[in-house]
Simulated assay, not measured.
Amino acid sequence: MSSAIRPATSEDAELLTAIEAQADALLIDSLGAPVWPPAANGAERLAEPGFVLVLEESEGSSPVGFVHVLDSDGHAHLEQLSVLPTVGRQGFGRRLVSAALDEARDRGYTRMTLRTYAEIPWNAPFYASCGFLESIPETPFQRGLVETEAALGLDRYGRRVQMTAEL
């Protein structure tokens, strides 16, 4: 059996929240973060402009990962990539990023941004291996993300960076 990637549906909403919470637990442990924002509500994620893709280990099975790309003022922004830790290190995250880049290109975007931790191996180094380069926040949305991250205290756990992939 081979894995499958498809657009998320409303039936996936609760699973999106659960997948993110489990994936976040791995990051929280790695950072030693005693305080962390809760996983986003899957239904709210699905209602935002942009798209969410899910990955199933085999076609028709429950999703084990997802990627959420926001459309903000005509720009594609990879908001969240989460894969269940129990199926990690099998290339699912890379497949989701690749599918997100393809979908964004098909939708007419010319680049995709994201924000992440610079020194966590499965964050900035991983995204760099997918074609993302460190960049400067240019749009009001991107600068707002920096402010939001600071307000949430995410920068106390390590250097945060913006990265961009040209499509």
Rank of each mutant, 00 (worst) to 15 (best):
Leu15Met: 12
Ala23His: 12
Phe141Thr: 08
Ser135Asp: 15
Glu44Leu: 10
Arg159Cys: 01
Phe51Gln: 04
Leu96Trp: 05
Gly65Met: 07
Thr116Leu: 10
Phe66Cys: 09
Ala18Ser: 14
Leu81Thr: 01
Phe92Val: 00
Glu14Arg: 13
Phe132Ile: 09
Asp71Pro: 06
Val54Tyr: 04
Glu48Ser: 10
Arg156Thr: 13
Leu101Cys: 14
Arg159Leu: 12
Ser135Met: 07
Glu147Asp: 15
Val64Tyr: 01
Pro140Asp: 14
Arg6Gly: 06
Leu152Asp: 04
Arg95Lys: 15
Thr17Asn: 02
Val52Glu: 03
Glu149Trp: 08
Val54Pro: 08
Thr164Ser: 05
Ile5Val: 12
Arg89Gly: 05
Phe66Tyr: 15
Thr139Leu: 12
Leu152His: 06
Gln80Leu: 06
Ala25Cys: 10
Ser2Asn: 04
Arg94Asp: 05
Ala40Ile: 02
Leu31Ala: 12
Ser2Pro: 00
Leu96Tyr: 05
Leu46Ser: 08
Tyr117Trp: 12
Trp122Asp: 03
Ala13Ser: 13
Arg107Leu: 14
Phe126Cys: 08
Gly42His: 02
Val87Arg: 07
Ala25Glu: 15
Ser2Gly: 00
Gly158Ile: 12
Tyr109Met: 02
Pro38Cys: 07
Leu53Met: 13
Glu56Cys: 15
Ala8Glu: 06
Ala33Lys: 01
Ser129Met: 00
Asp29Trp: 00
Pro7Glu: 12
Phe132Met: 10
Asp29His: 06
Gln90Thr: 04
Cys130Lys: 04
Ala43Ile: 00
Glu134Thr: 13
Glu59Lys: 14
Tyr157Thr: 08
His77Ala: 10
Glu20Ala: 02
Ala118Cys: 07
Ser61Ala: 14
Ser30Val: 02
Phe126Gly: 06
Leu31Cys: 13
Glu56Val: 14
Ser129Gly: 13
Thr17Pro: 00
Phe132Leu: 13
Asp29Lys: 14
Thr17Val: 02
Glu138Thr: 10
Gly74Pro: 12
Thr17Lys: 04
Ala18Met: 06
Leu101Thr: 14
Phe51Glu: 07
Asn123Pro: 02
Trp122Cys: 00
Gly144Lys: 09
Leu53His: 11
Ser129Phe: 00
Pro140Asn: 08
Tyr109Asn: 05
Val69Phe: 05
Val64Ile: 11
Gln90Asn: 13
Arg105Pro: 01
Gln162Ile: 08
Glu138Pro: 00
Gly88Val: 04
Asp155Thr: 11
Ala43Gln: 13
Arg115Ile: 02
Ala39Pro: 06
